[in-house]
Simulated assay, not measured.
Amino acid sequence: MDFNANKAIYLQIAAYVCDHILLGTWKVDDKLPSVRELAVQLEVNPNTVMRTYDLLQQKEIVVNRRGVGFFVTDASVSNVKAYRKAVFLEEDLFPFFRNIYLLEISLDELKQRYHNFIEQNFKNNEL
C-alpha cells in the first residue's frame, strides 16, 4: 500500500478496510486480519493498525471479540457509508467544487466522466 504523506496512516488504513467492506471482500461476520497480520501486510507498526481498529470499533464498523479478533459488524456497510460520507463532505467537497469552478468543468462533463468511471472500474464490483 502506498501511503499519502498528507494524511495520517491509520486513517488511510481505515479507508483501506472500509473499501474492502464496501466492495464485499470482507462481509458481515468475517474475521479481519489480525493486528500483526495486517501490520506485516501493509508494512506498518502494529500500534498503527490497532489505532485503526479502535477507530473503526468506535464507528461500529468492526467489533472486537475478545481473544478471537476483530469482525465486521451487521451494520458495517451503512456505518462505513455514513462515516465516509461525513469525511467526504467535511474534507473533500470544498476543494472538489473549487476545482470544478476554477477549471470551468460543466456538470454534463462530470456526469459523463462519472458514468465512464463506473462502467470501467466497477463491472466486477472491484476497484
Rank of each mutant, 00 (worst) to 15 (best):
V68W: 10
D29Y: 04
F71I: 13
A86V: 12
K59P: 08
E91P: 00
L102W: 13
A82L: 15
L55C: 05
K59T: 12
V44G: 07
V62P: 09
L89W: 14
V77Q: 05
N124A: 05
E119D: 04
V35S: 06
A15S: 08
M50T: 10
P95C: 15
E91F: 00
A86G: 04
A15M: 09
A39L: 01
V77C: 07
N116A: 02
N4Y: 12
A8D: 02
Q120N: 08
V68P: 06
K85N: 05
R98V: 14
N4H: 13
L55E: 08
Y114T: 15
F94V: 03
D19L: 08
K31L: 00
Q41W: 05
Q112V: 15
N6Y: 04
G69M: 04
C18V: 01
R51E: 14
F122Q: 13
P46M: 14
A86Q: 13
A39K: 11
R65D: 11
E126H: 14
I100D: 00
V49D: 04
I105V: 01
N124F: 02
V40R: 11
E109T: 04
V17R: 01
Y53I: 06
F71M: 14
S76D: 03
V40M: 02
Q41S: 08
G24I: 09
P46Q: 14
N45S: 10
Y101I: 09
V80Q: 11
E104T: 04
D19V: 08
E119I: 11
K123Q: 06
F70A: 06
S34Y: 05
V17H: 00
I61E: 10
F117Q: 02
Y114G: 15
Y16G: 11
V28T: 04
N47F: 00
D30K: 03
N4Q: 09
Q41P: 06
Y83D: 07
N6G: 11
F70I: 02
L11Y: 09
Q112E: 15
M50E: 10
R51K: 14
L103V: 01
E43A: 07
A75F: 11
V17Y: 05
Y114H: 15
F117W: 03
G67M: 14
L107D: 06
Y16K: 07
K85E: 08
M50C: 12
L127T: 15
N116K: 05
V80G: 10
N47D: 03
T52F: 01
F70N: 08
L22P: 15
K27A: 13
M50N: 11
K111H: 10
A39M: 01
R66C: 02
V80F: 14
F122E: 08
K85P: 05
N4K: 11
N4E: 12
E60K: 07
Y10K: 03
A86N: 13
H20P: 12
N4F: 10
R66E: 01
K31G: 03
A75D: 12
F71S: 14
R51G: 11
Y10S: 00
R84K: 09
N99A: 12
L55S: 07
E37L: 05
R84E: 01
V35Q: 10
V49Y: 04
Y101W: 10
L23E: 06
I13L: 04
P33S: 01
V80H: 13
P95E: 15
V17D: 06
L55F: 06
V40C: 02
L32D: 02
N6Q: 06
D30W: 03
I118F: 00
Y16F: 12
P46L: 14
L42Q: 01
R113V: 13
V62D: 00
F97G: 05
L89A: 14
V49G: 07
